[in-house]
Design a protein around this nucleic acid. Structure first.
Lengths: 199, 199, 199, 199
DNA sequence: CATGAATGAGTTTTCATTCAT
DNA sequence: AATGAATGAAAACTCATTCAT
């Protein structure tokens, strides 16, 4: 085996993993998180069920990995936004509209909470999810603080404001689950406005 | 015909049903919604597993009934608040603090979303849940409108504001699920403040 | 209690029993014999399930009684026919057409065979059913013998002919079960003709 | 893609299916059709209960497949007999004696009728069973017609005669179920004779 | 790495029968 | 006699995981 091939194999493996994970989210969005079976995911990914276990040790590992990547990606996205030279209100708008546009985001959101609540998921997993959630609040809190310095964001503990901001978006995300939808519009600008001083 | 007191039987039955349902919520709060078995609920309620089926046709019916009662109770609570002679900001505060204090409320919230997402739950159930959710927005919207007339609540479509308010509270509720908790305080007054004009 | 009342009670009881039994056959014809539950029968009879056990010791007893009465009634019917002053060919015709006209007769027929085959039914029950079946062959065999004396019925062991005659009718009865039916006419005269010498 | 021999796998699967089906008939013949459980069949076939569901979606599917194969095999058998160069009376004799010699044939017969009667079995299944039954009458009807041309079979609609012939054999088959048996001999020659003109 | 057959524990559901009222 | 709640054993079915090929 040349090192070239080893590298290629690893790439292939990574592609496969990403493919399986996105298929998992996809099928979770259709079947409902609680009732997705290994078989469902394997079929959706076009992979044999036995082969799934070459990529993941268990079903729980799939969920854990899904969460890790989802939360990490989101964290990076928010961090990048936070470091931009724009004004705070614009940054909040970007986060808000981007998030709400993402299809399947509600699936991630439900998955996060399912993972945290299920006795099945290990204490360790729950701790990690909560830790990442909390960490991901920091960039948003930084934006809130920036906004307060700019005189546009309401006063109050920036971390608390960030918490409310993210919770609000998550709450709305859940309302966008497929099936029947709540017949009330969602306007990112209006959401951001709640956190601003000027009416 | 019957040597038994029919009315008393019906009362007993209702009491039993309520008891089973609250046991169900209780155990769901501990075990996690996805993994509650009929056996868990039966044990928690101190009822034999076979007997459960005298009160509910299926596990799904338990969930459906739980949702119906939970949403109806909440709707009545909000309607009563809305009709009080208090100011809007005070009403919002009452809703917010009451809701966040309720133990197990996160369980209802997750259950609502689980029900709406699972392919298992019928289209009919999903429709009903969404309809009740939407109906329950109205009293909150009325409060928003009142607040706008009083000059304290921010401008904007009252229904939209109500939607945000409820979504925010639901989003926060989810963060209060047992296990590891997010280390950020939740202050009802601060939440309400987001919807007010005066900083 | 006057003896008058006791007698009346017994009459009432008998009426009730007959009513339950006919409801049982009725519902077996709809639900299928294998899947009739005590509850089904009780509901069909408009009797509470607990009350069923005042009239029958068990579900098996219902089946046993159903068989006993069905076979006894049939036996009496055939015996009466056999003793009539008519010619054998006419007697055969009467048996054949009467039987095939009876609604639900297929249910009895299947029930007989189900009872004889199921390991559930006791050895004793199976013996009784077979014994009654065999006994009920005798009057038909007598008719066959009469017919042979009259020169109209084919030669051969009368008991064997009777066995074929009854088996043929039972086989046809099974084809008349509800649902889709075999699109071939059944003519009693043609059936009888099979057992006659003259074409 | 696959390091396994796909064709061989399919062959193995077919063998397994046939094995399970014959085990099912076997155990039905012992336990009685109504009370055969998945577990019984699995044990009889030496297969784990979970594995049964790799081959059949449900218990009903097993019954449906059993019927399909049984009726198809019988149809082929009869068709082959019909095309032989022999005389009609000899063909009828072959069908009759072969059928009555087949062990477990009564089990198929009862199964057919059980399937047609049970509300459990779908309308579709009942239609199929009846259709196959009707189709299988045709070769027998052809034999009857041949016999009429040969001057040995009684006059009358050949299809109707075939219907009677098959019903008679089925009726007799049911009498051969295990347990107590009717103490009357069954002679294929005598049965065929019923359909012949010459005494 | 790839496949899908095999396992067995676990889940929901049914049902004959008993029992307190 | 009448009712229907209660029980528990058993049935059908599911599914994560392992393993031979």
């Amino acid at each position: 085996m040349s090192p070239r091939n080893v590298e290629k194999d690893l790439q292939k493996r990574e592609i496969r993993i990403v493919h399986i994970l996105s298929s998992a989210i996809e099928v979770m969005a259709v079947k409902g998180i609680g009732s997705v079976s290994m078989n469902d995911i394997a079929s959706a990914a076009g992979v044999s069920i036995g082969n799934m276990y070459h990529y993941f040790k268990s079903k729980d590992e799939i969920f854990a990995e899904l969460l890790r990547r989802g939360q990490t990606d989101y964290g990076e996205f928010v961090a990048i936004i936070a470091q931009k030279p724009d004004r705070a209100r614009e940054k909040l708008y970007m986060i808000c509209s981007t998030w709400l546009q993402m299809t399947n985001h509600w699936a991630y959101t439900i998955l996060i909470h399912t993972a945290r609540m299920s006795e099945t998921s290990s204490e360790e997993l729950r701790r990690q999810v909560t830790e990442r959630f909390t960490n991901n609040l920091s960039p948003v809190a930084a934006i809130m603080e920036q906004g307060q310095r700019e005189g546009e964001v309401k006063t109050g503990d920036p971390m608390e404001l960030a918490f409310y901001f993210v919770s609000l978006i998550q709450g709305l995300t859940l309302q966008r689950a497929p099936g029947v939808e709540v017949p009330v519009g969602i306007e990112p600008a209006d959401i951001v406005r709640l956190f601003l001083t000027a009416a």
